[in-house]
């Protein structure tokens, strides 16, 4: 323990941080002004090094996608003979664009549905008191505890009986509301002050409007996170789409990519190219939504 355990030793230094209040959450010791740029530089450096470690497998994936099939196991990060041949092969020999479109449709619609229903349910569970609240919450939460592998057969029987196989709805229906998101939103709605909601009620807002106009904007960071993960989860979903999809045209990307593997091994050069292309939309979604996570700071007006 150094000076951070001496609360009143450096009041001035702490005061200096007012301009960037978020730093208050840090444990970095800041004794003198000259240390701050150094500390900051170190922080950037350490996070950069860590970050490079994090992206290493991704970089390897992209590098491999640019290698010829016979070079795929040359373990250099720089392709000896860079080629776009794998990409061309994937695009020419499979309905990749169609798979991409299917995944996009499924992921976007599911994300919109989850964002709406999960925030609504999360809000109700966090802010309403009514008989059965705890039971309903646990009931919903308990659905997370059953592995998908055990549910696919009943779902498939259901899909056959209702004629949902080989359709977008068939792929999407198990995921249009998620207990995971309900739990997330509930946790964040719990932090919304009750005073605000009560004040809005007195002002004559309808219950739905209070949710939509008052409470929801306050949990934007969580909502953004939920959108990212729902999109990603559905973009990558494999077990269920594989079973419910019959035709090659209705495959989603992960299902399509799985067909590059077979009994005699996997065509890793094609898998890497397809996987690299599959990553692009997710990065875009992430870049867009992670800004919303920053904007959450705008809610400093909330009074406790």
């Amino acid at each position: 323990m150094t000076s951070e355990s001496l609360p009143h030793a450096q009041p001035d230094a702490v005061m200096d941080q007012k301009g960037t209040t978020r730093q208050a959450a840090s444990t970095v010791v800041q004794k003198k002004d000259w240390r701050r740029p150094v500390a900051r530089f170190l922080l950037y450096l350490i996070l950069l090094i860590g970050g490079l470690g994090m992206v290493f497998p991704f970089v390897w994936m992209v590098a491999s996608s640019l290698k010829d099939a016979s070079d795929i196991y040359s373990l250099s990060l720089i392709p000896p003979d860079p080629t776009l041949g794998n990409y061309r092969e994937v695009l020419n020999e499979t309905p990749f664009a169609r798979w991409f479109f299917n995944s996009l449709v499924v992921a976007l619609i599911t994300t919109a549905s989850v964002a709406f229903f999960d925030s609504l349910v999360g809000y109700v569970l966090a802010k309403f008191r009514f008989p059965g609240r705890t039971v309903i919450f646990l009931l919903m939460l308990s659905t997370l505890m059953v592995p998908t592998e055990m549910l696919v057969i009943p779902w498939f029987v259901m899909s056959i009986n209702l004629g949902w196989t080989d359709s977008y709805w068939g792929i999407m229906f198990p995921g249009v509301i998620s207990a995971f998101g309900i739990f997330l939103m509930r946790q964040f709605f719990m932090g919304v002050p009750n005073d605000l909601i009560d004040a809005a009620r007195i002002d004559g807002f309808s219950e739905f409007r209070i949710f939509w106009k008052i409470a929801l904007p306050l949990v934007k960071p969580a909502l953004a996170a939920l959108c990212i993960f729902t999109f990603l989860g559905n973009w990558n979903a494999y077990i269920w789409p594989l079973i419910v999809v019959r035709s090659e045209e209705m495959r989603t990307l992960p299902v399509g990519i799985a067909f590059f593997s077979s009994e005699a091994g996997s065509a890793f050069h094609l898998i890497m190219a397809a996987a690299a292309m599959a990553t692009i939309p997710v990065i875009i979604v992430f870049v867009i939504f992670q800004r919303q996570i920053i904007k959450g700071i705008a809610l400093t007006g909330v009074k406790g």
Binding site: I153, V157, A258, S261, S262, E263
Partner: peptide, 21 residues
């Protein structure tokens, strides 16, 4: 003809047969 990845062979068959297909 219908195909599925080798690793998922029995899961595919089981799901379909259980559903009467």
């Amino acid at each position: 003809q219908r195909n599925f990845p080798y690793d998922d062979f029995r899961q595919q068959v089981a799901a379909a047969v259980q559903a009467g297909e």
